[in-house]
Design a protein around this nucleic acid. Structure first.
Lengths: 125, 125
DNA sequence: GTAGCAGTTGGAGTTAACTCCAAGTCAAGC
DNA sequence: GCTTGACTTGGAGTTAACTCCAACTGCTAC
């Protein structure tokens, strides 16, 4: 698969794909004789994983560390598991925070609805 | 309240508090005769609101728009309500995404646990 | 064989959201 | 009246994560 094919499929720009490779989120992408990247299904799956983790805010640096551990082989299985567990915990906290903020917004919107219904009373902020 | 008191109370640096004021997230903070900021409880409540919204990723720009609408008075009640509803919807989507990613991480961690238990088999990534 | 297009590189530029700094002011204590 | 420490300002610097660019290469079609 060429970079533009992967780009379309994963909805990530070629620039970003090259950037991810450069910073170590995607190692050893195959090249054709002419030096053009030739992505495998495996590469795509990894890119989707990166995309998913990035979309919820895992930093490039954390992902870089994860793949660096990966390159060091089986003996880093536990370290990788712990890294994932740590990030999972942080995400869980963000999840609860998000839940609370959604509730707060719902309440605020309901207060707006009341203010709008009752002769446009003003709010504090 | 002085800026350092608010800083401690809200756990936001004085620089950030001044920055928020400068970009329009906190208008007309009172000053003492000597020109020193003197925050009210109301200001603090607003800062907490900003902090809460920022912590889940609402941009400074969106919050700036919200408070700008606010300054234009009651006739913007509906516009503000709609702005909040729009952001709520986006947060809801991020919420679902986060939920899915948590599940994915849980699964991946369970795969790691299996690999670690069964003689350190290696994974794909 | 040459036009055109997709790909390559290294490196510069951008954006959001802070964060830091230097130079100055002011009120309080000695 | 002088030091000290918290505060002020405008503006420069930082960081993460892209995003863009110029100059170049190498297939493919005519």
């Amino acid at each position: 698969m060429t970079i533009s094919e992967v780009s379309k499929r994963c909805n990530i720009s070629p620039d970003t794909l090259r950037y991810y490779e450069k910073v170590g989120l995607l190692s050893d992408v195959n090249r054709t004789a002419g030096g053009i990247r030739d992505y495998t299904e495996q590469d795509c799956a990894q890119i989707e994983f990166v995309k998913c983790m990035r979309s919820v805010g895992l930093s490039i640096e954390i992902l870089r560390k994860y793949f660096e551990l990966f390159k060091r082989g089986k003996r880093t299985l536990k370290a990788r598991r712990e890294l994932l567990a740590t990030e999972r915990k942080a995400l869980q906290e963000r999840f609860v925070e998000l839940q609370d903020t959604l509730k707060r917004l719902d309440y605020k919107i309901s207060v707006y609805d009341k203010a709008i219904a009752s002769k446009d009373k003003e709010l504090k902020f």
